[in-house]
């Protein structure tokens, strides 16, 4: 989709810069002789020298812990530290009501995902179609995305407190009071809502970047044919932006699964009654508070599998939807 991608990756006639041989169009002799044989060897090693710090860090602090963690999830905690215990941790996880709550909430996130994608998608469409004030909206909508979840959570703690301003406002028109963060049936929706409030600007910018690659003549053709806005969205915009939509679906889901910790930590601490637990919060509690690192590792592995499955599932579903459209 991106413009700069095609040209450089299919670069014509490799000139072998890394090998130290200059392009044929210039006389090779001076450069080679100046560098000499030792220089050639240094040239050959250069890419690896340049890559060394990055590869070392990624190997030691990303891939090694990943393997270690999977292995760790099959060992015991406490007295059985280091002993292989087979699937005991996974069995314990499935029996733990808190982890089941966390999994149930993942299901809820999957159900809410289309809404979380549709909101920025619709807004991006309107901004692209130059609704009055579109430039201003673009920068205003993006602004909560730069705030830390901790700050967002603190602000909404203030607004949503039981004796706080929102309930005072609703009380003025005869509604409520609602215990936004204290009612187990409501709290998770509130936290997800706050997360969407804080992040829809990110997805909006991604959508707008996708719109920038859209062929304007298609839209003109639709207008000439007298298509209504919903028809234009369904038959022109959605098919042309299939890749962007897919990307937003996957990244929004990943965001919901991996970047709500700050909100949960500040707003609900997983409560009330465990109703706002997510796997990432469960991992944190087991590792940090309960001193059950092996159990936490098992939960990590489950989270990784969930993300893998959700990612692959969404990509295949969307592929099919696009083909049928």
């Amino acid at each position: 989709m991106p413009v700069p991608e095609a040209a450089p990756s299919v670069r014509p006639a490799p000139t072998g810069r890394a090998g130290g041989t200059p392009p044929r169009s210039v006389p090779p002799a001076p450069t080679v002789s100046r560098r000499g044989r030792g220089g050639r060897r240094a040239e050959r090693l250069a890419p690896f020298v340049l890559l060394a710090p990055a590869l070392l860090i990624l190997a030691l602090l990303r891939f090694w812990p990943l393997l270690l963690g999977v292995n760790f999830s099959f060992t015991g905690d406490g007295d059985r530290d280091g002993l292989m215990v087979g699937l005991d941790n996974y069995r314990e996880l499935l029996g733990d009501p808190l982890f089941r709550d966390a999994l149930g909430n993942v299901g809820l996130l999957v159900l809410l995902l289309p809404v979380a994608v549709a909101i920025p998608g619709l807004l991006a469409t309107l901004i692209y179609l130059r609704v009055p004030g579109h430039r201003l909206y673009r920068s205003v909508y993006f602004f909560p995305a730069v705030l830390s979840p901790v700050i967002v959570g603190a602000i909404f703690n203030l607004l949503l407190a039981f004796d706080g301003p929102l309930n005072a406002l609703l009380g003025g028109v005869g509604i409520g009071p609602v215990d936004w963060l204290g009612d187990p049936d409501v709290a998770m929706f509130v936290v997800v809502g706050v997360h969407v409030w804080a992040t829809f600007g990110m997805a909006l910018v991604v959508f707008l970047a996708g719109f920038a690659t859209l062929d304007a003549s298609l839209l003109d053709a639709a207008r000439v044919d007298g298509a209504s806005l919903p028809q234009t969205v369904r038959h022109v915009i959605v098919p042309s932006l299939a890749r962007t939509i897919q990307f937003v679906f996957v990244t929004t889901m990943i965001g919901m699964l991996t970047s709500m910790f700050g909100l949960l930590y500040v707003m609900t601490s997983g409560g009330p009654e465990g109703s706002t637990y997510l796997p990432e919060y469960y991992i944190w509690i087991q590792q940090g508070q309960m001193n059950r690192p092996a159990l936490a590792s098992a939960a990590s592995t489950v989270l990784f599998l969930i993300m893998l499955v959700v990612g692959l599932l969404q990509i295949s579903l969307l592929r099919r939807a696009v083909r049928e459209a």
Binding site: R62, W64, P65, L66, F72, I283, P293, S300, T301, L303
Partner: peptide, 8 residues
């Protein structure tokens, strides 16, 4: 994601 590797 970080949550997956944070324990090790």
């Amino acid at each position: 994601p970080f949550q997956v590797i944070m324990v090790p």
